[in-house]
Computed example of a mutant assay.
Amino acid sequence: MDHSTPGSLPANRRPPAQARLRRILAMDAAGMTVFALAYLLAAGPVARALGVAEQLVLVAGALMLAIGAGVGLLASRSRPPAVPVRLVIAIGIAWALASVVSLALGWLHPSTAGTVWIILQAVPVTVFAALQSAALRTRA
Protein backbone atom coordinates (compact mmCIF):
# COMPACT_ATOMS: atom_id res chain seq x y z
CA MET A 1 0.00 0.00 0.00
CA ASP A 2 1.27 3.47 -0.87
CA HIS A 3 1.36 5.76 2.16
CA SER A 4 2.33 8.90 0.29
CA THR A 5 0.27 12.02 0.72
CA PRO A 6 -1.89 13.26 -2.14
CA GLY A 7 0.26 14.92 -4.76
CA SER A 8 3.52 13.44 -3.47
CA LEU A 9 5.60 10.68 -4.94
CA PRO A 10 5.73 7.20 -3.43
CA ALA A 11 8.73 6.77 -1.15
CA ASN A 12 10.50 4.42 -3.57
CA ARG A 13 10.54 6.86 -6.52
CA ARG A 14 12.95 9.70 -7.22
CA PRO A 15 11.44 13.13 -7.76
CA PRO A 16 11.09 14.24 -11.38
CA ALA A 17 14.18 15.79 -12.91
CA GLN A 18 12.58 19.25 -12.83
CA ALA A 19 12.07 19.06 -9.07
CA ARG A 20 15.60 17.65 -8.62
CA LEU A 21 17.09 20.53 -10.58
CA ARG A 22 15.20 23.08 -8.49
CA ARG A 23 16.28 21.40 -5.23
CA ILE A 24 19.91 21.25 -6.33
CA LEU A 25 19.82 24.92 -7.33
CA ALA A 26 18.20 25.82 -3.99
CA MET A 27 20.83 23.90 -1.99
CA ASP A 28 23.61 25.53 -4.02
CA ALA A 29 22.13 28.99 -3.46
CA ALA A 30 21.76 28.37 0.28
CA GLY A 31 25.33 27.16 0.67
CA MET A 32 26.73 30.06 -1.33
CA THR A 33 24.71 32.56 0.67
CA VAL A 34 25.85 31.17 4.01
CA PHE A 35 29.52 31.27 3.05
CA ALA A 36 29.13 34.66 1.37
CA LEU A 37 27.69 36.15 4.55
CA ALA A 38 30.44 34.57 6.64
CA TYR A 39 33.09 36.01 4.32
CA LEU A 40 31.48 39.44 4.30
CA LEU A 41 30.74 39.64 8.03
CA ALA A 42 34.04 38.14 9.21
CA ALA A 43 36.42 39.07 6.40
CA GLY A 44 39.29 40.01 8.71
CA PRO A 45 39.34 36.83 10.80
CA VAL A 46 38.71 34.65 7.74
CA ALA A 47 41.55 36.33 5.84
CA ARG A 48 43.95 35.88 8.76
CA ALA A 49 42.98 32.21 9.19
CA LEU A 50 43.48 31.50 5.49
CA GLY A 51 46.55 33.68 5.06
CA VAL A 52 45.06 35.74 2.23
CA ALA A 53 44.25 39.41 1.76
CA GLU A 54 41.08 40.66 3.42
CA GLN A 55 40.12 42.31 0.12
CA LEU A 56 40.13 38.88 -1.59
CA VAL A 57 37.75 37.50 1.05
CA LEU A 58 35.45 40.52 0.64
CA VAL A 59 35.41 40.22 -3.17
CA ALA A 60 34.80 36.45 -2.97
CA GLY A 61 31.97 37.03 -0.49
CA ALA A 62 30.36 39.70 -2.66
CA LEU A 63 30.60 37.51 -5.77
CA MET A 64 29.18 34.53 -3.92
CA LEU A 65 26.30 36.61 -2.57
CA ALA A 66 25.42 37.90 -6.04
CA ILE A 67 25.73 34.47 -7.65
CA GLY A 68 23.81 32.85 -4.78
CA ALA A 69 20.96 35.34 -5.24
CA GLY A 70 20.82 34.55 -8.96
CA VAL A 71 20.87 30.81 -8.34
CA GLY A 72 18.14 31.23 -5.72
CA LEU A 73 16.04 33.13 -8.23
CA LEU A 74 16.48 30.29 -10.74
CA ALA A 75 15.50 27.74 -8.08
CA SER A 76 12.28 29.66 -7.45
CA ARG A 77 11.14 29.30 -11.05
CA SER A 78 8.76 26.45 -11.83
CA ARG A 79 10.98 25.53 -14.79
CA PRO A 80 14.41 27.16 -14.59
CA PRO A 81 15.51 28.18 -18.11
CA ALA A 82 18.32 26.05 -19.50
CA VAL A 83 20.62 28.89 -20.57
CA PRO A 84 20.91 30.53 -17.13
CA VAL A 85 21.34 27.10 -15.52
CA ARG A 86 24.18 26.38 -17.95
CA LEU A 87 25.69 29.72 -16.98
CA VAL A 88 25.52 28.71 -13.30
CA ILE A 89 27.26 25.44 -14.19
CA ALA A 90 29.95 27.29 -16.15
CA ILE A 91 30.52 29.75 -13.30
CA GLY A 92 30.88 26.86 -10.85
CA ILE A 93 33.42 25.09 -13.05
CA ALA A 94 35.32 28.33 -13.62
CA TRP A 95 35.34 29.04 -9.86
CA ALA A 96 36.70 25.59 -9.03
CA LEU A 97 39.34 25.76 -11.78
CA ALA A 98 40.40 29.27 -10.79
CA SER A 99 40.76 28.12 -7.18
CA VAL A 100 43.11 25.28 -8.07
CA VAL A 101 44.99 27.20 -10.79
CA SER A 102 45.56 30.15 -8.43
CA LEU A 103 47.40 27.80 -6.11
CA ALA A 104 49.25 25.89 -8.82
CA LEU A 105 50.54 29.07 -10.48
CA GLY A 106 51.39 30.77 -7.19
CA TRP A 107 48.94 33.65 -7.61
CA LEU A 108 48.03 33.24 -3.96
CA HIS A 109 50.28 32.46 -1.01
CA PRO A 110 47.84 31.26 1.63
CA SER A 111 48.66 29.54 4.89
CA THR A 112 48.52 25.76 5.00
CA ALA A 113 44.95 26.03 6.29
CA GLY A 114 44.17 28.41 3.42
CA THR A 115 45.61 26.03 0.85
CA VAL A 116 43.54 23.17 2.23
CA TRP A 117 40.41 25.37 2.36
CA ILE A 118 40.85 26.61 -1.22
CA ILE A 119 41.11 23.03 -2.46
CA LEU A 120 38.26 21.74 -0.27
CA GLN A 121 35.84 24.53 -1.21
CA ALA A 122 36.29 23.65 -4.88
CA VAL A 123 34.87 20.17 -4.22
CA PRO A 124 31.23 21.08 -3.44
CA VAL A 125 31.28 23.70 -6.21
CA THR A 126 32.29 20.97 -8.67
CA VAL A 127 29.75 18.52 -7.24
CA PHE A 128 26.92 21.05 -7.57
CA ALA A 129 27.95 21.80 -11.17
CA ALA A 130 27.89 18.07 -11.98
CA LEU A 131 24.52 17.54 -10.25
CA GLN A 132 23.00 20.56 -11.99
CA SER A 133 24.32 19.38 -15.35
CA ALA A 134 22.91 15.87 -14.84
CA ALA A 135 19.52 17.19 -13.70
CA LEU A 136 19.36 19.59 -16.63
CA ARG A 137 20.10 16.77 -19.09
CA THR A 138 17.46 14.44 -17.65
CA ARG A 139 14.59 16.86 -17.14
CA ALA A 140 11.59 16.57 -19.40
Score class of each variant (00 low, 15 high):
Leu120Lys: 07
Ala47Met: 11
Val127Phe: 11
Val123Leu: 10
Gly31Trp: 01
Arg13Gln: 03
Ala69Pro: 03
Met27Trp: 14
Val57Ile: 13
Leu87Ile: 14
Trp117Pro: 02
Ala38Pro: 02
Tyr39Phe: 10
Leu21Asn: 06
Met1Asp: 01
Ala47Lys: 09
Val71Thr: 11
Ile118Ala: 04
Arg86Trp: 07
Ala130Phe: 14
Ser78Glu: 12
Glu54Trp: 05
Asp28Gly: 05
Arg137Ile: 10
Ile24Trp: 14
Leu105Pro: 08
Phe35Met: 13
Trp95Leu: 05
Arg14Met: 02
Ala43Met: 04
Ile91Thr: 15
Ile67Ala: 10
Leu9Gly: 13
Ala96Val: 04
Ala60Glu: 01
Gln121Ala: 06
Asp2Thr: 00
Ala98Ile: 10
Val88Cys: 07
Gly106Tyr: 05
Arg13Trp: 00
Ala36Asp: 04
Ser133Ile: 03
Gly68Val: 07
Leu97Ser: 11
Ala113Met: 09
Leu56Pro: 02
Trp95Gln: 10
Gly70Thr: 11
Val116Ser: 13
Leu63Trp: 07
Leu136Met: 12
Ala36Asn: 00
Arg14Ile: 02
Met1Lys: 00
Gly92Trp: 05
Ala19Glu: 14
Gly61Ala: 10
Ser4Ala: 03
Pro15Tyr: 01
Gln132Leu: 11
Ala30Asp: 00
Leu97Asp: 04
Gly114Leu: 07
Leu74Asp: 11
Val123Asn: 11
Ala69Met: 10
Phe128Ile: 13
Leu105Thr: 11
Arg79His: 04
Ile118Lys: 05
Gly106Gln: 14
Ser133Phe: 06
Ala135Gly: 07
Leu120Met: 10
Gly72Thr: 12
Trp107Thr: 14
Val116Thr: 13
Ala122Tyr: 03
Ile89Asn: 14
Ala19Trp: 03
Ile67Ser: 13
Gly61Phe: 09
Arg22Pro: 02
Pro16Arg: 03
Val125Ile: 14
Gly106Ala: 15
Val123Arg: 15
Gly68Cys: 04
Gly72Gln: 13
Met27Pro: 08
Arg22Lys: 11
Ala38Trp: 01
Gly92Phe: 01
Leu56Cys: 12
Leu9Glu: 02
Leu131Trp: 07
Val88Glu: 06
Ala140Val: 10
Gly51Asp: 08
Pro110Asp: 08
Val71Gly: 07
Leu97Val: 06
Leu65Asp: 15
Ala75Thr: 09
Ala38Tyr: 03
